[in-house]
Design a protein around this nucleic acid. Structure first.
Lengths: 120, 120
DNA sequence: CGCCATCGTTGACAAGCGTCATCGATCGGG
DNA sequence: CCCGATCGATGACGCTTGTCAACGATGGCG
C-alpha cells in the first residue's frame, strides 16, 4: 500500500523514535506542520489501515510502532524515481545534480570516497 | 503546478518527440498503458490547464509541445526526493543503492568516471 | 449541400488525500 | 458512584487523480 506524503511525516517521526503514543506523535509533528490533533489522528488511523504501523495496547491508549522499515521505504521510493526518470541508472542522476550545480565540494568529496570504497 | 503520474507519461512522450497531435500521443501512450482515447484526451486537457504543454493550431487540430523542460522537471523531482529522504545529500542516496546491492559493476564504473571528471 | 468522421471540451464518477470536528467509550478524581 | 477529560473511531468535505463517455463544432467527401 502506498504511503501518502502527509502520512510519511508520521512515519518519519516513528522512525526517529518508537514506540510513541498518539499524543507524542501529535507533539512531534503537529506544530511544525500546522496540523490539529484531529488531522494527526486521522493520519495515524489510515496508516494503521494500511498496515504501515502497528498499535500495541498500553492501558487505555496505544503505543504505535512502524511496521514498514525506513530502509525499505526509502529503497522503494528511490528505485521508483530512478526507474521513472533515469531509466533505472544511477549515474545519470548524479550527472543531473552535477550539471545543475547542485553539488557542493563536500558532496563531491563524499562521493569520491564512497565510489573508491565501493569499487574495491 | 504539480504534474501527476499519469500526466507525466504524456510529458515523456512529448519530450521524446515534439510537437505531436493528440492522435499521435494516443498512439504513443494509449496502448502501452491500456488507456482509451478519452483518457489520454483528458490528460492532455489537464496538462494544458496546468500550462505544462502548449497547443498550436494546425488546421482543425492542435500540435502539442511541452512548455516544461524535462531537465527542470527531473531536477525538481530529484531534488524533492533527496530533500525528503536524504536530508538533501547525494552521497547517502548512492550508499542506499550500494548497500541494497543495486549497483552493477557498470554502474560503479560509470560513477567512478563521473566523479573523477567532476572533481577536477 | 448534406452527412459522417473527427477534434477538443466537458461531464461524470470512484478512489485517495488533506484537513478538521464530532461521537461513543472509558478511566480517574472527587 | 458520577462527571469530566481523554482516546480512538468515524463522518465529513473539498480537491486531485485516474478513467471513460458523451457532446458540440467543424471540415471534407460524395
Amino acid at each position: 500500500m502506498k504511503i501518502s506524503s502527509a502520512e510519511s511525516v508520521i512515519m518519519e517521526a516513528l522512525w526517529r523514535k518508537q514506540p510513541l503514543t498518539s499524543e507524542a506523535i501529535i507533539a512531534e509533528v503537529g506544530e511544525p506542520n500546522g496540523w490539529t490533533e484531529g488531522t494527526v489522528k486521522q493520519l495515524i488511523s489510515r496508516l494503521l489501515k494500511k498496515k504501515a504501523i502497528a498499535a500495541q495496547p498500553d492501558g487505555r491508549r496505544y503505543l504505535y510502532s512502524p511496521l514498514l522499515a525506513r530502509r525499505d521505504y526509502v529503497q522503494a521510493e528511490s528505485q521508483g524515481l530512478l526507474d521513472r526518470l533515469f531509466d533505472g541508472r544511477l549515474a545519470p542522476l548524479v550527472t543531473q545534480f552535477s550539471e545543475g550545480g547542485k553539488l557542493s565540494d563536500e558532496d563531491v568529496a563524499e562521493l569520491k570516497a564512497l565510489v573508491e570504497r565501493i569499487s574495491r
